[in-house]
Amino acid sequence: MKKTVICLAILTMMSAAVSCGNTGNNGTLENSQKTTTSSAVTTAVPEASKAEKTTAANVSAKSETENKAKDTEQNAPTFNESDRLFGGYVATQGDDLNLRNEPFPTADIIDTIPNGTQIDIYSCGRAGWYCTVFKGKSGYVSADYIKEIESYDAGTETANIYGYYPVTEQPRTSIAVSDLEGTWTCGDDTITFHDCSWNAGQFEMKTTYYDIQGSVLLEYTLTPDNMEEMWYTLYNKEGAFVTAFHAESGIQLTDIYAGQSGDPHYTRK
C-alpha cells in the first residue's frame, strides 16, 4: 500500500514538472514574436520619415523653381510699337550677347543672342540698355553691343555680281570711306587707305603672299526683311572682289572686321 501511494506521488510530481516546462516554452516564442514585431516597426519608421523628407525637399525645390520663373515673368518688359527705336543687330565681334531679366550687368541671364543676330530694339528708360525680344523671350541687352541697321531708299539700283548695291546718297549717320584713311594691320598684313571721299577711295593691301591695289567703296546688301547693311567693299584694279568690312556708324573707327564672322580683324596702326 505504501509503495502504491509513493508511486502515485512521484507520477503527480513528474506531471507537474512537464506542465511547467511547456508553459516556459510557449512564453519564449511569444516574447520572440513580440521582439520581432517591435523590431519591424522600429525599422519601418525611419524609412517612412526619409520618404516624407524627400517629398518635402522635392516640393520645396519645385516651389523655388516656380517662384523664380514667376519672378522672371513678372520682370519681363512689355512693348508697344511706339517704343520701338530701330531694327538692330548684335555686334559683339564674336561672342554671344546676354539677354537679362533686368537692365543691370549682374541681373539673371535669360538667354544668349549670337553675334550678328538681327533684333528689334525698344526703349527701356535706362541709359546704356535696350529692350528686345529673342525666341519669344523679352529682356534687356547692353546698348554697347547693339548696332542699327541703316535703312535707305534703294531706288532703281541693282546689285553687282557679288550682291552689293552702290550707295548714291550720303548716309544720314556718320558712315564714310574717309574714316578709313591711314594704315591698318592684322598681324603682319597691312592695308593702307588713301585719297578717300565719303563713298570711295583707294587702297594698297600687303600680305605674306601678295600685294593688291584697288578701290574701296561704300556699298550695302539687303537683309531678308529688306533692310540695308552697310559695307566697305574692296575691289582690285580688274574689278574683282577682294573683301568687305562691316561699316560701323557713329563711332571713331579703331577696328574693322570682315563679315559677320569677324575674320580677318584689322586695327588702326
Score class of each variant (00 low, 15 high):
Val242Ile: 13
Thr55Met: 14
Ala247Trp: 11
Gln33Glu: 10
Ser249Met: 00
Thr42Asn: 05
His194Glu: 11
Thr267Ser: 01
Asp263Glu: 09
Glu47Tyr: 13
Lys70Phe: 07
Ala56Ile: 15
Trp231Arg: 00
Ser123Thr: 03
Leu8Cys: 13
Thr28Ile: 09
Asn58Gly: 02
Thr233Tyr: 03
Asn67Thr: 06
Asn115Gly: 03
Ala91Gln: 07
Pro264Thr: 03
Asn160Asp: 15
Thr54Gln: 13
Thr36Ser: 06
Phe241Gly: 08
Tyr130Ile: 12
Thr37Phe: 15
Lys206Trp: 01
Ser15Pro: 04
Glu204Thr: 07
Tyr209Cys: 04
Lys147Val: 02
Glu157Leu: 05
Ala107Glu: 05
Asp225Gln: 08
Asn199Tyr: 01
Gly94Trp: 06
Pro105Thr: 14
Pro103Gln: 01
Gly214Asp: 07
Thr185Ala: 03
Asp144Cys: 08
Ile113Lys: 08
Trp184Asn: 01
Gly88Ser: 14
Tyr165Asn: 09
Ile212Arg: 03
Tyr130His: 05
Thr185Gly: 01
Gly87Asp: 04
Thr35Met: 12
Tyr162His: 09
Ser19Arg: 15
Asp120Cys: 04
Glu30Met: 11
Glu169Tyr: 06
Thr55Leu: 08
Ile175Cys: 12
Arg268Glu: 00
Ala40Ile: 10
Glu148Pro: 04
Glu81Asp: 08
Ile109Gly: 15
Thr158Lys: 07
Thr233Gln: 03
Leu85Val: 00
Gln202Met: 15
Gly250Met: 00
Gly155Thr: 10
Gln213Ile: 09
Ala17Cys: 13
Val18Pro: 01
Glu64Asn: 10
Thr12Asp: 10
Thr55Glu: 05
Ile113Ser: 08
Arg268Tyr: 09
His246Tyr: 14
Ala154Glu: 15
Thr28Gln: 15
Asp225His: 15
